[in-house]
Design a protein around this nucleic acid. Structure first.
Lengths: 260, 260
DNA sequence: ACCTGAACACCGTTCAAGT
DNA sequence: ACCTGAACACCGTTCAAGT
């Protein structure tokens, strides 16, 4: 996935380079702009217009400022998008059992939940972020995702999976199976939602329209049977069922191969 | 993933609209350009420069023609990319057992292979396409993927999974688990390969460099243990092992939940 | 320290014109 | 039927200049 950046040459990640200092010294007049505001406006714009509709000039206009002002705070568009990416990763609520003792919290619950429950929580939260922010998927494909929030996320994911009973040398595989699944699932779910929003129809209307065009075109004997078995209800209900059961499959697989 | 297209408004897929007729009538002078040549050059350019480096003007230059000539054959850049997407889908070799009787072939093998073997073949082929063409992932996220080759691919995937013994209403879940995993896995694998190519270093060099920077930054107790357990060998070997075992996990899950 | 304006080298695409 | 050239409305980013 590529963003609108011009060159194909690799640029270093913002997390691998010296950051511009944002700290304001003393009581210099605090102006309207700062990192936080810029990233927030970026995410708002990305949510509303999509990655293709986002530009530094649009962002500047949104902030009521000239195109180049943003560049005082941010080195390039790519760096800004990496900041938005990590901010989105920060929205994923992690199981307290997996993040270690929290500053200012008296005690973590005495009885940590089962690893399956924790896994389901992270998966569901990750899925939610991907659907809320359809641009997140593209940025995850484009950048390294090694910002501070991503590091915490990876750490917690690892902690959860280590409680599954899998031997150490299988953990990365299991993590890949679960999180790549969630990534792919959340990607198409988010895109479908965005597509229906952009077209001004409900997801269900769009779904039936698409099924119609495809069915018209060719005979879909088995496929139709499967779609019917997949069952009634709204698109949202189908997606929830598919997601839940796929996760059950992954967990069952982990349990089955745990002992070998 | 968004391409470099300018608007955020949805445009209809090439597969849902009337195609431009490419057929040349009679013996009109056959010029140098045609659909096949354009798509082939597009894929070559995408492989070499990446999605961000691709432009209609670059393509035209590659074809030794003016920027606007391509537009005689192709409506928009998006349509062209959809053609490249489906062409890439066409590279995925499908198990003969799953595609039905083939025109001109005398007989399909009397003994169809186990569904697990067939699934492993499709998964491996899909992975290969994603790694060979790192731009494929972004296009899959951006467009509908309902071209002729995608339809055959979906049909075959369905046929394989129907032999797993899962009840009909669980098939879409299992398909999602397996293919979204492969999609995600192939995406990062392809990006990593492209990144190392662009940086002019081997994958192993890039891997150690990245591990170094990350390790320097923070204490990685469990993470390091996992990485060490994941074991020796090249990046390629690690990826192959992870991929194979993750697929084993998914298959084991399907087998485990088959009867419920 | 922060913001602006003009400029450069690019885009995708339209449109009128050539052969 | 096919290809060109100029033009339009955009990009990300540099750079010199303002306050």
């Amino acid at each position: 996935m590529a963003t609108g950046s011009r060159t194909a040459r690799p640029r270093s990640s913002i997390w691998l380079s010296e950051r511009k200092t944002t700290k304001r010294k003393g009581d210099q007049q605090p102006v309207g702009l700062d990192h936080l505001k810029i990233v927030a406006a970026t995410m708002r714009l990305l949510d509303a217009e999509g990655l293709a509709g986002f530009s530094m000039r649009r962002l500047a206009a949104e902030l009521g400022v000239t195109a180049m002002s943003v560049y005082w705070y941010v080195e390039t568009k790519d760096h800004l998008l990496e900041l938005a990416l990590d901010a989105a990763m920060g929205e994923i609520a992690l199981p307290i059992e997996a993040v270690g003792p929290v500053e200012g919290l008296e005690h973590t619950p005495a009885e940590p939940r089962d690893w399956r429950e924790q896994l389901r929580q992270v998966a569901s939260e990750y899925r939610g972020a991907l659907v809320r922010h359809p641009w997140l998927s593209a940025l995850l494909g484009e950048y390294l995702n090694i910002g501070p929030n991503a590091v915490v996320f990876n750490h917690a994911s690892l902690a959860v999976m280590r409680n599954s009973g899998l031997p150490d040398d299988r953990i990365t595989s299991a993590l890949a199976l679960v999180y790549q699944f969630v990534y792919g699932f959340g990607t198409i779910e988010g895109r479908f939602a965005a597509r229906s929003r952009a077209a001004g129809v409900t997801q269900d209307e769009l779904f039936h329209e698409m099924m119609g065009t495809v069915e018209d075109r060719m005979e879909f004997d088995e496929a139709r049977k499967i779609m019917e078995a997949r069952g009634g209800g709204t698109v949202q209900e189908m997606q929830d069922r598919d997601f839940t059961f796929a996760l059950d499959l992954a967990i069952a697989g982990i349990e089955a191969l745990r002992e070998r």
